[in-house]
Design a protein around this nucleic acid. Structure first.
Lengths: 234, 234
DNA sequence: CAAGTAGGTTGATCGAAATCAATTCGCGCG
DNA sequence: CGCGCGAATTGATTTCGATCAACCTACTTG
């Protein structure tokens, strides 16, 4: 049953905090209590160390997942073994759902980007429930629609924007758009951000240093923006 | 009501051929007759000339569409006016659905790549129906899941493969994988194929000429493959 | 406290594809 | 059947980011 390269700990009982994250997740957030309860009962919580693979390309698709803590990276492999990131999911986000109504095998790898806990739902149960309870179907459609837009954003970003522009866009997504200066903390390693943006870590680093000229200061994972408007023009 | 730059002809009655395409589309193909009938009744058929825009980024999202004939190109614009293709849809395919459960405005432009006819469904009607009829929700989930995989394929392809590899992959998708040689016809302009693959037309052209060395001959829109296996190794 | 290590940065080089410009091809049309 | 125009190809150049290598810095570990 355990998959991937590292050790996996199965946790029998969800703790309160995890329960909260799950109920606030994109799967549950607009679901009625009774349906949520039924779905919740079928959840299994597992914990994973950094680098662990939750599933691989070609594995039979048995579950969909919700991240409870940490970040999960989805990526595809080329014949030569190079990796391309196609998604990065944090607490409250769902992954692995795209396969639900199409293929019977995963078409990507899922890896813990750090120590993670995830909730796992049997794909057949969810599918069955979605067929009976419109609100479950609605929630899944919401999730898929969001993911679809994200993926298309990625395509457009890759094709239209240079490295500094992609980074500027990422930063802007994390700035309140009413004020001039802002700051935030990247919630994961910079190398993950690089992958998410389709860049080599070196390119991300260089992009950050170019953005210094536009009033962006970086120390560790902390990003300081002095002039949000200037960033928009990059 | 008519959108876009060119003339739009509203067709009052669907003809038989169009009806067939629609019933075989990814929206209707696994739908029961009564539900299909209800949905069908709300369809409006329109015809568009090449280059016409069906909707633009920022337009209020009022409809989802099914292509009946021709090809529709979805693209995003950069600030500088450059275009990035994020989808190309032919007869029987649905587009514009991603916005249904998320945003209230389209996030991309839809353009007729040639003379086209499309069926249009009111988004609120479809949403309502999806909430009541699980089979409609199911169909939409199928469509979105498929589109999500396509979009992620695009991301991975862009990030992992060179121009000749992307072209080789495209060709292989159109070859029966049991026989050694094959041939097919690209169903649209090469410049559209280039856009779909995230390439400039010149790059597509160069990729084709590189593939000549692997037994691929191109005359007009006809592609001849002598050695399918050799292509897989590119 | 010294050494080791992983993540990140900086520098130098290389390669792939975009871009711009000039032809050529191929198809629809009179 | 040739004409004409948009599409496609080919060539020359440039730009961007990947790659490889060296270095740096902050943490861990003995």
């Amino acid at each position: 049953m355990p998959r991937g390269s590292g050790v996996m700990t199965k946790i029998l009982k969800m703790n309160l905090r995890e329960r909260e994250v799950l109920l606030a997740s994109t799967l549950f957030d607009s679901m009625s209590a009774p349906v949520a309860k039924r779905l919740m009962e079928s959840a299994t919580v597992t914990s994973h160390e950094s680098k662990d693979l939750l599933f691989r390309e070609g594995d039979p698709a048995e579950s969909i997942y919700c991240v409870l803590s940490g970040y999960i990276r989805l990526f595809r492999l080329s014949k030569e073994g190079r990796e391309a990131d196609i998604g990065l999911f944090g607490p409250g986000e769902i992954f692995g759902e795209c396969v639900m109504f199409v293929a019977s095998n995963y078409m990507m790898n899922a890896q813990a980007a750090e120590t993670c806990t995830v909730a796992r739902f049997d794909i057949n149960k969810v599918r069955e429930l979605a067929g009976k309870e419109p609100e479950v179907a609605l929630a899944l459609m919401n999730i898929m629609a969001r993911h679809l837009m994200q993926a298309r954003d990625n395509v457009a970003n890759d094709r239209l924007h240079t490295a500094p522009q992609r980074v500027a866009n990422y930063i802007l997504e994390h700035c309140p758009d009413n004020q001039l200066s802002a700051s935030f903390r990247i919630p994961f390693q910079k190398s993950l951000l690089a992958g998410k943006l389709g860049l080599a870590p070196e390119a991300l680093s260089r992009a950050f240093s170019m953005l210094k000229n536009c009033g962006v200061s970086v120390r560790g994972r902390i990003i300081q923006i002095n002039d949000v408007e200037a960033l928009r023009k990059v």
